[in-house]
Design a protein around this nucleic acid. Structure first.
Lengths: 143, 143
DNA sequence: ATATTTGCAAACGCTTTGCAAAATT
DNA sequence: AATTTTGCAAAGCGTTTGCAAATAT
């Protein structure tokens, strides 16, 4: 029996470090309510760091999302989008213009309560509404 | 000015035809509450129609979904899944076993009412809950 | 000094598409 | 007969990954 050195069983990842790329990506997202895609974030950050690669952007967006510093939105069509707002809220995607808008809407307690009663443990949820946004709704009734 | 023959502007698609592939794909889904992926449907149908191609399965699942005969679920990770139940309901995906379960849960009227008041038109929504299903929740507390 | 992170390019998984032949209406 | 649909293979899109060099701790 050979002595084992500190069991790396859990594939533990060391502490995330603060690189200029990581900082710039996070900063680019701050205050951007447009729910940009990774590609869009890449283009924004590229102005500041012209040598940054798209892979780095993808890696960092994923990491920031895992850390809960940003939110990842998958709309079911097209690329994922990223949201600097991490509080509980839903999203509305317009069928016409494709824009994604924040909707301040939490899931009613009673809904999850029933689930938990039947043995589920609800950790999170993603709610995406589809339809026409105010702009496009008005435009379409004018057609 | 040359006479134009019947303007094909709208790229109108003719009526869907009933092929044995289409029928088999739809049939394979009937009563299958497991929310199979396109690949899984393909394997099932292949037993009956060994020469069917994966592309045909993809095409038909999309078509059936557009027609409202089945429902397409995008969970945000992994391939899309298909549901023969078309009525309003949510989905629960277990973080541990990955299974997707139906949750009879409609969106409360009041929630959408506010949106409609502010000019939105809500056509549909997709709600996916994440957490632990009863089986996995029990298993994990035993750890 | 050690571990993480980067940029690059190549690979990946899922899905869609162009095409000629086959099948449906 | 006209048009849709099929199977095949190839392309597509968004994303992830292997690697050696660069960087943060």
């Amino acid at each position: 029996m050979r002595p084992q050195k500190a069991e790396k069983t859990d594939e533990v990842q060391g502490l995330p470090r603060i690189t200029k790329q990581r900082r710039a990506i996070f900063a680019a997202l701050q205050g951007d309510a447009s729910h940009p895609t990774a590609e869009e974030v890449y283009l924004r950050v590229k102005e500041e760091l012209p040598h940054i690669s798209l892979a780095t952007v993808y890696r960092n967006l994923k990491l920031l999302a895992r850390q809960g510093l940003i939110r990842e939105i998958s709309t079911g069509e097209g690329p994922n989008r990223y949201d600097f707002r991490t509080h509980e809220h839903a999203h509305f995607q317009c069928d016409r213009c494709g824009r994604i808008l924040d909707v301040e809407m939490g899931l009613p307690r009673e809904l999850t309560r029933d689930l938990e009663r039947t043995g589920f443990r609800v950790r999170s949820h993603e709610l995406v509404l589809h339809g026409l946004c105010p702009d496009c709704g008005a435009a379409s009734s004018a057609d």
